[in-house]
Design a protein around this nucleic acid. Structure first.
Lengths: 190, 190, 190, 190
DNA sequence: GATGAATGAGTGTTCATTCAT
DNA sequence: CATGAATGAACACTCATTCAT
């Protein structure tokens, strides 16, 4: 299936995200997505097996893209707090500059489509961050509690603050992000 | 003249939530919902203006129900920390016992449908909690930072930890909830 | 079926005509007509057997009303030309003052519903006019040709000139009606 | 890529006319029309934007077809009376041979759908006939009266005489048509 | 007599997908 | 590779009518 015309595939990727964000999965039909991308509905089936494949592949592609951006220039020799703070800012930066991608991913992962994706595959992308936290626990810098609790305080507030559907008026200024990190660090540090 | 049948409306409410959780907004057609509720598709239009009205009303009803449950026996004479902890446990209790409602609300608020709801109307329901936080700030017990940041650390970790789509394996034991509250409090306290 | 509440029946009659003229038979549903008349859809079935009965009865009632108005004060002792001219003006007067009724009747008689009506029953209403023409033929004042041809020149031009869907801009002034009658008379007179 | 199938479109055109004449606009559903034409209901939407577009386009197509037939071999060098008589017979001929088309057009123009059509566009088709009448007036052969009155006596009687819903028993013989023209001419000539 | 609730059958339309080119 | 034509199945919704009160 994978083919030569990358321009069309990219247009399709962007059109899918745009339309799903605007009108939701329910109303985003194959032909509307095709029209938005400037191609024929039939052409979608050259690139993807079916509609579900299009939606799932788009999600996975976003996640891959996101993890790559976040881990770019990642330096695991930094002290724990600095390493986490670095990631913290990277995530906010990605979310700010790719808010449509992020919003699509959020909507997707809150829908039953999410069960079609191998979560471990996705989590693998974010392993370096996990390693920092584990190191922090070992060094008794981070509280030694259930791992899910820790991530709920390090990553989930980011998602809430970045999501315009949740925090409509939150200003993603460096100062605010810095303040937020302070809270996150207070939550998890020993 | 026949009179409206409350049992039918309740069945419709439950069927909507069940189906949307199972197969998502995209696939939850009016006729599938009607079948699940054991009524005729046409009957839905006796109770709701259209499909959108059904979905939005269901969301609002859940939020109303949720806020009522959380604020039951709410005591604002308690010290700040105890007051918040009380609410913290109440939310976990509600989410545990009404996970389907909660999941519907999450999916809804991450979809474009959410723009159809007057957010202020919804937030009104949760005002008592807001008041506790404000009091905490005034008494210099809670950090005096942007309000959205505070709520991102008090409420959103709960949502993450309770959401089986996010924390599949998290055990909602009293001990875990207590630990999680400790982190939340460390995050926000002065 | 015939009942006590004449006000409701009259409202129903008018609502039917108004709605059918505005949106046509196709879109005029029983419940829309009921709403227009300010009654419940179910109440229509107290007065009429079904929707078809409502539409057909409305047509017949209009025709009865029309014939009564046209033949009021009819004087068959007048000379042929004067008798016909009298009717001619009466018809224009009726159509001007009851254009909605007339328009409904036109739409009805051009639709397949018309086959449900006994045409002879309707024509009976207009018998006095027929008699004038027959007298005119016998007296060799009117051309002795096929009867349908004569009526096509005496009655149908009126319908065309009165129908706003056909002659949008025709001014139903006395002068114009008089002129039109001159043409009609020239057409049929010996 | 498949290419559009003219046979299907023609079948759709005929099916629309047949069904609307038989059961009226009210009962002619898209799926019934599709079945009559031997195609899928969905296919109609390949050729027309929606049901309204189908009905209106069918009407316009009939009018175009009609005007072309009537004006075929039209000779405006003939004397006024001969020119009009020629048209008169042509119209009757068309109506006789295409009675279904004619009946559809009549029902359409008496329904609220007619307001969707640009009347001037339609009238343009019949301009040559208008020119003959104007010439007749200028040459003082035809009465110099309101134009709408003249057309009501030249064209509308044809419609009445040809319409089986109005003149059920009228025989469209040459003799009868000739007689009818005599009356029309007597009506309008100076 | 009068009505709102209730519904099976139907509406016009769009859907995801396949086909022929 | 790419496409517009074509469609069975499904969509949200309305219909005419009946029922229980």
């Amino acid at each position: 299936m994978r083919t030569k015309n990358d321009i069309k595939q990219k247009a399709l990727f962007e059109a899918t995200i745009k339309l799903v964000n605007e009108i939701g999965f329910a109303s985003s039909s194959v032909s509307k997505i095709a029209k938005e991308a400037g191609i024929s509905p039939a052409t979608i089936y050259v690139y993807y097996k079916n509609k579900e494949d299009l939606l799932v592949s788009t999600y996975i592609e976003i996640k891959r893209n996101m993890s790559k951006a976040i881990q770019k220039d990642f330096d695991d020799s930094l002290p724990i707090r600095d390493g986490l703070k670095n990631i913290w800012f990277k995530i906010f930066e990605y979310v700010s500059t790719h808010s449509a991608y992020f919003q699509y991913a959020e909507q997707f992962s809150n829908s039953p489509y999410s069960s079609l994706v191998d979560k471990q595959e996705i989590e693998k992308y974010f392993d370096p961050m996990i390693q920092v936290i584990i190191k922090g626990i070992e060094q008794k810098i981070i509280k030694n509690v259930n791992f899910e609790i820790l991530t709920a305080f390090i990553f989930y507030p980011i998602i809430a603050l970045s999501n315009p559907r949740i925090c409509q008026d939150f200003d993603l200024s460096d100062e605010n992000i810095e303040t937020a990190f302070k809270l996150a660090w207070d939550a998890i540090r020993f």
